[in-house]
Amino acid sequence: MEKDLLESLLSELRRGTLILCVLSQLGEARYGYALVQILGEKGISIDANTLYPLLRRLEKQGLLCSEWNTEETKPRKYYKRTVFGDQIFAELVKQWNDLSTGMNDLLGGN
């Protein structure tokens, strides 16, 4: 029970940061699974069944654009930040830095 609660609190904590994680890696075009791997290597685990729908949503919101690459053996959909996505990303990073400074203060004070 305690473990379940911790799990759900953790996933709630991570959820908000996922968009920033994803946007950060899409300055250059990448396909979904490559992103899962890159984030995984950096210790951010994201399930494909969360990431793929998220990518589509961000594209719908105009933050990402996509293109199918059919030259390789498998057809893959590559995502990349749009100009608008760049602006939003920069703004989010700024907010994140402020937030983490504040958080560190709070947690360090304990």
Partner: peptide, 16 residues
């Protein structure tokens, strides 16, 4: 599109 996307995702996950 989702069908194609999933197809390559599953294959990628298998091999990788």
């Amino acid at each position: 599109e989702i069908s194609l996307e999933l197809q390559s995702l599953i294959e990628d996950m298998c091999t990788e």
